[in-house]
Every structure is written in structure tokens, then in C-alpha cells.
Simulated assay, not measured.
Amino acid sequence: MKQCKKNLERLLGAVAAVMLCISSLLQVPVMADELKVYARAALLMDASNGRILYEENGYEKLPMASTTKIMTCILALEYIKEHETTVWEEPVEVSGHAASMPKVKLGVQKGDKFLLEDLLYSLMLESHNDTAVAIAEYIDGSVPAFAQRMNEKARSLGCRDTNFITPNGLDAEADGKTHETTAADLARIAAYALKNEDFRKIIGTRSYTFPELSGRRTFQVYNKDRFLDLMDGAIGIKTGFTGKAGYCFVGALERDKKTFVSVVLGSGWPPHKNWKWEDTKTLMEYGLSKYTEKCILQPYTYRPLPVEEGISAQAAIRLESGDREKELTMLLSAEDIVKVTRQYPQKLKAPVTEGTCIGYEKYFVNGQLWRSYKILTAESVDLRTYSYCLQQIFMLYF
């Protein structure tokens, strides 16, 4: 009898384990399409709103090589804006540490002085590692301090799986952590950077000449981003390569009122230098052909609700203010499913205060919450009290 009980317990345990596995499998999101890409991680984002349109291993933590410099550049641009009265008077002075960085490098020497803005072209057009460190040390005094700034910015953008250690993207480990990100986080950073017109100007520049401020040398840098010539509407953004990361590229494209950001990480190793371009083109063509701009707004009339124990029998309700048509215009494919829910009580109880949130109108795309709007009371209704009733009787008869 005991043996039967044990066998039954084992059987039930096995069934439970199988059901748990099936449940886990069912919860894994599956992309409707599978693109042929070489990259270990690939992702396409609608840059206008941050919606991910395609991803393959998009949330896997991986090294990102010199695509790191996107963050270095945008932080430097924001620093220039915040300190615009001093950056022109206080040039970047290169340290021995910055000058010692490995290739790819500008070839600066200890004591060289540059304008911060000039170094950003060296950083982004030719991906110079010595330039990145010089920028970091100028802004925060040291690489670790600047890395802290990078990580704080990443968190503020919603990047929870990113850890910066260096400003140039060289493979690194510190305090048990690795210099790494995900394709999803890197796309968020790139989409944010694209909102800065100075950033766009830099990554779209074909060549740039600038001096070392002593006048001893002049440098000319050239844009190495081949994607600029691969597709109409290409914007850039940044290539990268290290032994651990492989070939990486973050790209952007604007065409037909669509703005895409693509990310490929680990898109081959030597001699497959061109795979990153093929992968990027595949992602961009997928976005252009599959997605069109649509407004998912579903107009709805909110009728007044009855009010219990109020001096008025009902109270008007409304949605919170906002440009919903703009917020709900997005890129959709034929397979995308939009659902709208409206949750609010069918009656209210006095007293009612104007502007009180009583529910939400929610828009879901493929089961994921996209936008949520508060349903508010549009007027106040006082409680019907004994003194109020006496007052009404008095006014009626006297």
C-alpha cells in the first residue's frame, strides 16, 4: 500500500513537472517571422516610440565593442550644452593613460590639447580609443567616474541589462562584472541619441579636419560607416569589433515617415567583415516592407454615471487630456493584434470630486500594454445630507 502511494506521488510529481515545462514553453514569446541573420543577437526598433518590431536573442547580454561610443558621444554633447560657456575656454588635455590606448587610435600624445567637440568626430567617424578615454577623463576626471555616469544614464533610459566599464568599448571586467549590454538596451540608447541634432550631424559627416591646439599638428578623419551608402535614407550610426564581441553595428534609417534603429551583435568574426552590413540591410528591408503607419485610436463616448446619495442624479466622466491620435499612431504589420479595454465602475457614490481617477482605458498590441489613459470624473457632486434636504424643502415652500 505504501509502495503504491509512493508510486502515485512520483507519477503526480512527474505530471506536475511536465505541465510546468509546457506552461513555461507557452509563455515564451515567439516572433511571427524568422529572418536569416548571421548575428548572435539582432533587433529592429521603431525609433519614434521604442517599440521592438523584431528581435532574435535581443535580451541576451553580450559585449558591444565600439558601439559603446554612442553613449560616450551623447554624454559629451550633453556636457557641452550644460557647460557651453567653459568648454571653449578649457580644452581637453590628453593624459598618458589616454595616449596609451591600443588601436584603433588617433595617435594623440600626452599633453596634446583639443576642443572637446573636435574629438567627437574622431570618436564617431574613425572610432578612436584614445579619443574616448581623453573625453571621459576631461568630463569626469577618470574612466571609472565616467563609466558611472554612463551607467546612470543607461538606467534613466530604462536599460537594466547594460554595464559600462570603458568609454571606448574594449573588452573589460571589473568588480565581477563585464562590459556588456543587450541589443534591446543598445537600441534604446541609439534611439535616444538620434533625438539630438548635433549627434545626427556628427554621424552623417563624411570627413572632418581639426587641429591640435598648439598648432603642431592637424588631423583629418573619415567616416568608416559603409551603411550610409547601402540604402536610401540611411543615417549611420556606429560600427564595432573586439575579439569577444565580434563585428557589431548599430544602424538607423529614415524613409516613408518611418524611422528604424537596428542592432546586430556578434555578426561574425574575421574574415566575415561584411556580415554586419548584410544583417542590417535584412532588418531594415523587413521593417520597410512589413510595417505601415496606422492610428489605433478607437473613439468612445463616455456617458454620465449615476451617483448614489448625491445632490445630482448623475456625474459626467471623461478621458484625461492628451494628443491620443498622435500617441496611438504607430507602425503595424498585418499580423499585429490591437485590443482596447475600458475598466471603470458603472455607478458612483457621493461625494464626487472633479478630476478623480475612476478607471483606465488601455490599448494593447499583441497582448502587451502600449498606452493607458485615466478615466476621470468631469464634475463634482456633493453628498445629499439631512441639512441639504431641509434646505431644499425650505426653498420649495418658502
Score class of each variant (00 low, 15 high):
P29I: 14
Y360D: 12
L75R: 07
Y222I: 12
G268A: 07
G236Y: 02
L75M: 13
K201I: 04
V18D: 02
R155H: 12
V221F: 09
G236R: 08
V338R: 02
T166V: 09
G233R: 02
Y388I: 04
C159G: 03
E379V: 05
G96T: 12
Y286I: 07
L11Y: 14
C159K: 01
N7G: 02
L75D: 07
A184S: 02
E335Q: 12
Q109K: 15
A16L: 15
A350T: 06
N366H: 12
E93I: 13
G246V: 11
L305H: 05
L123V: 04
V261N: 00
L213F: 15
L35R: 04
F394W: 15
W269V: 07
I202H: 08
G359R: 04
S66Y: 11
W275S: 06
F227T: 01
P270I: 08
W277C: 06
Y192S: 14
G176Q: 04
A136V: 07
Q220V: 05
S289W: 05
S262I: 05
P144R: 07
K103Q: 15
P345N: 06
Q314L: 00
N163K: 07
E89H: 08
V264Q: 06
E197W: 12
E325Q: 14
D46L: 08
C389I: 11
I375W: 11
L25D: 02
L119H: 00
L11N: 04
R255V: 13
R51T: 09
V221K: 03
I74F: 11
A154P: 06
L283F: 12
G204C: 07
L11V: 15
F398R: 13
A99T: 14
T209D: 03
A47C: 04
K374V: 01
T67Y: 01
K195P: 00
M330K: 06
Y344S: 11
A183D: 02
Y138D: 08
D130A: 05
M45K: 00
Y386Q: 08
F249Q: 00
